[in-house]
Design a protein around this nucleic acid. Sequence first.
DNA 1: TCAAAACTGATTGACGTCTATCATCTCCTC
DNA 2: GAGGAGATGATAGACGTCAATCAGTTTTGA
Lengths: 348, 348
Amino acid sequence: MRSPTLHDVARSAGVSYSTADRVLNGRGGVAEKSAQRVQRAIEELGYRRDIHAANLSRRRNYRFLFLLPRGDHGFFTVLREALARETVRRMVDRLVITHREVPAFDAEALAAELDATNPEDYDCVALIGVDSAALDTAIRRLVENRLPVITLVSDSASDLRQSYIGIDNVIAGRTAGRLMRLTHLGRTGKVQPILGTLGVRDHRDRLQGATEVIAAAGSGLQILPPIEVQDRPEIMLGRLSDILQGDPGITGIYSIGGGNRGLIELLDRITGPRPVAVLHELTPHSRAALERGVIDAVIDQKPAEEISRAIDAMRAIADDMPAPDSRVVPTIYLADNLPDQNANGGWT
Amino acid sequence: MRSPTLHDVARSAGVSYSTADRVLNGRGGVAEKSAQRVQRAIEELGYRRDIHAANLSRRRNYRFLFLLPRGDHGFFTVLREALARETVRRMVDRLVITHREVPAFDAEALAAELDATNPEDYDCVALIGVDSAALDTAIRRLVENRLPVITLVSDSASDLRQSYIGIDNVIAGRTAGRLMRLTHLGRTGKVQPILGTLGVRDHRDRLQGATEVIAAAGSGLQILPPIEVQDRPEIMLGRLSDILQGDPGITGIYSIGGGNRGLIELLDRITGPRPVAVLHELTPHSRAALERGVIDAVIDQKPAEEISRAIDAMRAIADDMPAPDSRVVPTIYLADNLPDQNANGGWT
DNA sequence: TCAAAACTGATTGACGTCTATCATCTCCTC
DNA sequence: GAGGAGATGATAGACGTCAATCAGTTTTGA
């Protein structure tokens, strides 16, 4: 029941260990027919190289670089904390994870950071994608220098990056739209979408998804033109409070992006019935709001899970294994199915 | 930047490698003060044993046994498939996972299977808990013979098993109740709960959770006495169709257990408005029903994730690391946020 | 046909840990 | 102060792979 070693492969192929090794590791200098015999032996025996023994032997560490946005934006904070946890958790597996902070929403700065990165220093890089020619160029340089790149949370340069780990934002938007429909069964209403800016692809996608579902026949719902609040709580508070006063018929609020502290503050002030409120991303603020019944649902992309999967993917890439894209399914949190407060969403 | 080895520890403690090894692996025969010096060196250097090198050296495999219910019950099928995937996926990590099928819902048979298990043959056992004295006895025997046991999906013998991986069923029920409230905003209604039998703890817990939320002040909802259908589609179909005809005021159906094929068949027949329907467990049937709009929400416990976490926990236990309980948060699936069909819920 | 090139095999010492054996050395006890 | 128990050190061979070297064989082509 012992699994075969490379020695077994060599013996079965009728060649020396050296030759089997040359084939396995593509060192060259092997006659075609020998190579084929080794390959066949590998398949016949079902040989799989013991990756741990290999790593031990070559004193290999997996060196991964994460570029994450700076700042106290709730979601990014959660993301950074998840990364910090995984960093220590994975040390036993020889993963050396470096984390550099870059200014949020600044493609140029991100590109500059990549340009300043020596491709020799890492085995894989993860970053949050943005649509930007400068970023694409920077990514291309790394990839051409054999440093693979993956995108996280938001995709970009999809022909260059090896893998994308994150949610499909159209689906996230559709999920929000579905929640609006379900909370409006048997009645009509108007839904007000709020986003950071229409310039961000992710926000447009969510809006599109929500619109698809809400505007579909039989919903009895109307979706209003979106307002832009730059992910800023103050702007959110001001603009939205104007709008709610102007149109008392609004029965649903869908907050697509950030700045939710403003929204929550506003909802806290409302006495009597309030509109249904659906937000994105579980943060201490949104969680507290859910718990005290000020908002109804949070759509979350499980940052801890994304980080963990990103690391898995990076490791697979570093080991030259296929690393599939991994679409995370957006999760719905209501007041009752919140994860343990301290337990990073249950991700040990 | 190299992480310290046991040789480093020995040198730093001023003892030989042998002594350091004796301390690390508790082989005994070491003077108290030497042991302390070694311990101190370990802490000072931050030494962590290289578990992969250790496993390599002692030719260790992790031998885990899963006892899962037989039968084509949708949920159990998903569970078995997830296990099969993980079994191959984890082979590279020296995990040898054995899977034995036991009759479903039969504590005696499960206990018998455990009794027939030689504690020497495995490093950890996972099973789905049931309240049963016979099972407790069987578990006790294993644990006393140094074979740790964990429970999955449903807990039992909580003082004997090392860890429980699964959802909190009260929370799952509350989540269903919350969905009922949200789908009844601005209107009143009656919710009919359906379960396998009140004899099953998990079902009672879910009912309790749902009742807590639905019966709370301000819901405008009434929860009807539960009906028992033994998880059987035919019974479900018959009983429920009688009840719906008898009481046209029913606006919500909460199916707590199995037999959902009967429920779906019934709902498919309804023309015009139908009650809100919330089910448990994503299976091919429930998924299809969601997609064609016959039911509204599925509460899922992510079996693939549970399996994966169970294996993580078992490995931690086998390595003498702390293995925390892992409460999985029940997930809500609507028509729009379903996972990839083939992709076991996104769990690679 | 002979030298160069291409290929093959044998061997060795890592990597960090486990396990076993054997030889010392230091006490304590009678 | 001899005998024994207990503690310690030294050493060696595994585990499966990597990486390098060197000697030897076969093939190629001019």
